[in-house]
């Protein structure tokens, strides 16, 4: 029962710490990390009308972390007049991707079919990634809204990765790995990943080897991107709460260890 109460106390304190720190409007300054800068610079220098694929390879569960990353990257590409082909290799990413892409496009007055389109979802990801290297319209004969891909102006001269400048996989798992290992290795397709923080270390070897062009990771990555973009949003809003929550966890670890060592010394003393 005592351990149950301790657990409730920890839950309660964490919840209160986040509520209070989120309610305080202090804007923290973030220094963009090298890979976020690299991503931003890439988009800045990509010629207008270039075509990129943004694949929403995540589930709804990671939405609070993924959304700020996807939103700021979408805003940036539309500001740069880059054309976007949206798609998803996760069923839940389909509705989310379509929603975010459409809202960002409307914000910038973009036209569906000319400046952007959403292809929808394919369940077998390896088959889809490899198949798109041969023919995108073969894998996606129709877009998410049921239009024939052949009739969409944006797809006029696009049939495979040869016309795609970059694939951005917004992922909460290892789907971006498949983009790297199949589209990257076989078709020389450049890949950028927008990831949840938990996945960052998984992708470090690919970044180091150059197989992954760059990445934007977690809420912090979104905040860094927003600061480079010049308009703060969802990433920056949670920074203070994130800092306070980190300190809370660190304090828990320290207190837990103090109690552990104290008990160990006491039991040694008794022996």
């Amino acid at each position: 029962m005592r351990s149950q109460k301790t657990r409730w106390l920890i839950y309660g304190l964490l919840f209160i710490a986040i509520i209070i720190s989120y309610s305080i409007t202090i804007q923290l300054k973030v220094t963009p990390s090298p890979f976020v800068k690299k991503t931003f610079e890439y988009m800045e220098h990509l010629p207008p009308q270039s075509v990129i694929i943004i694949s929403f390879d995540h589930e709804a569960s990671s939405l609070p972390e993924i959304k700020p990353i996807a939103q700021i990257m979408l805003r940036h590409v539309f500001r740069q007049n880059i054309r976007v082909i949206g798609m998803s290799l996760f069923a839940e990413g389909t509705a989310i991707g379509y929603d975010m892409l459409t809202k960002a496009a409307r914000e910038f007055g973009k036209t569906y079919g000319e400046d952007y389109l959403f292809l929808g979802f394919k369940p077998q990801y390896i088959s889809a990634i490899l198949g798109m290297g041969e023919s995108i319209r073969r894998i996606f004969p129709e877009d998410y809204l049921g239009n024939r891909v052949d009739s969409i102006p944006l797809m006029k001269n696009i049939d495979n990765y040869n016309s795609i400048a970059m694939v951005i996989s917004i992922a909460d798992g290892d789907r971006a790995v498949q983009w790297i290992e199949y589209a990257g290795a076989r078709y020389d397709q450049k890949v950028i990943a927008g990831l949840t923080a938990a996945m960052i270390t998984t992708y470090d070897p690919y970044l180091n080897s150059g197989q992954l062009y760059s990445l934007v990771g977690g809420l912090r990555g979104a905040a860094e991107y927003e600061s480079l973009y010049g308009k703060l949003g969802g990433g920056n809003r949670g920074l203070l709460a994130q800092s306070v929550a980190h300190f809370f966890i660190i304090i828990l670890i320290i207190v837990g260890n103090i109690i552990y060592f104290k008990n160990r010394m006491q039991s040694k003393g008794m022996k």
Binding site: F15, S62, P64, E65, A197, T201, G218, L219, G238, H246
Partner: peptide, 26 residues
């Protein structure tokens, strides 16, 4: 070292999700 770094990032990730939900509630 790898597991530690991954744990640190995982904590960061889970807290971000919680912050997102708190943001929605507030």
């Amino acid at each position: 070292i790898f597991f530690g770094a991954t744990f640190g990032y995982t904590v960061m990730s889970r807290l971000s999700t919680l912050i997102g939900r708190v943001e929605f509630l507030l």
